[in-house]
């Protein structure tokens, strides 16, 4: 489904601020894979997501999605097939527009043929939105015409998740999308994520700072450090892995402790 082939990226090359953000990263995802990504601060997790979503063109290497080379495709073209959620719950929705208008925008991705650029939101669309919103269990289905700016961070992130998956994407990128929410809301959004990803069998990558949920969710776990993939866990090895063992393994491979400020606070 997704092939990342020898992708490298250096920011500010040749200056004192030179930063090798990605170094020869290669990764292959099969359809339906759910990969969790962990690593220190500045390991390159978000940079990898940005490379996949089209925020920059890598210095070398290529990215292939479902058989199509997307390395030079602009971000808005990729987003027809790639959904992305950020840590900041305000990034994914337009606050001055209503819930139904936000959903209608997300719906644009799919219905290329349906209605043309001058079509408006129909009663049929509203029913569909209501039905989908009801699956979130947040009561948003009765607030279709309210501006999104009135919603809480958790509600907005749940709505963003729904928007990103309203039309099943080929790939879903979750960049610590629950990190800015309070624990109870984070739990709820994570449950919703699990449900939607499983139901629609979405190929998914998730950055998290919570090692135990990284091991528990999905079928593969990747550890990054200094712009490289340090090791990958899957199958039997992953099932038997504990948080302590994983930290030991990290230290052994990189000769240092895992330093992720959020991770230290949430180790369970």
């Amino acid at each position: 489904m997704l092939s990342i082939e020898h992708v490298s990226k250096t920011f500010n090359p040749g200056t004192v601020n030179e930063k090798k953000a990605l170094e020869d990263v290669s990764l292959h995802l099969e359809r339906g894979d759910f990969v969790t990504l962990i690593g220190s601060n500045g390991a390159g997790k978000s940079t990898l997501f940005t490379a996949i979503a089209g925020g920059f063109v890598p210095d070398s290497g290529r990215i292939v999605l479902d058989g199509r080379d997307i390395t030079f495709l602009p971000d808005y073209r990729r987003s027809r097939e790639i959904g992305r959620l950020f840590q900041d719950p305000l990034k994914g929705t337009a606050p001055r527009m209503t819930i139904e208008e936000n959903l209608a925008l997300a719906y644009l991705r799919a219905s290329k043929g349906g209605g043309g650029i001058f079509s408006t939101i129909k009663a049929k669309d509203r029913d569909f939105f209501r039905e989908k919103l009801a699956t979130l269990g947040l009561g948003l289905e009765n607030r279709l015409t309210q501006p999104v700016g009135l919603l809480s961070g958790g509600q907005r992130q749940a709505l963003t998740l729904l928007m990103a998956t309203l039309v099943t994407p080929k790939l879903l990128l979750l960049d610590e999308h629950t990190a800015a929410l309070d624990p109870a809301t984070a739990e709820k959004v994570l449950e919703l994520t699990k449900k939607i990803v499983t139901q629609q069998n979405i190929t998914c990558m998730m950055v998290t700072h919570n090692i135990s949920s990284a091991l528990e969710l999905g079928n593969r776990t990747i550890m990054m450090d200094g712009g490289r993939i340090v090791f990958e866990l899957s199958g039997e090895e992953r099932r038997n892995m504990t948080v302590e063992e994983l930290l030991r393994r990290f230290k052994q491979q990189t000769n240092r402790q895992l330093d992720n400020d959020r991770m230290l606070l949430t180790r369970e």
Binding site: Y76, L90, A94, R96, L108
Partner: peptide
């Protein structure tokens, strides 16, 4: 809607294939 979203939240717009 796409024009309004562009003025409201640019990040979201390119993430909605606009």
């Amino acid at each position: 809607l796409s024009i309004r979203a562009t003025g409201d939240n640019r990040d979201m717009v390119s993430a909605s294939s606009i």
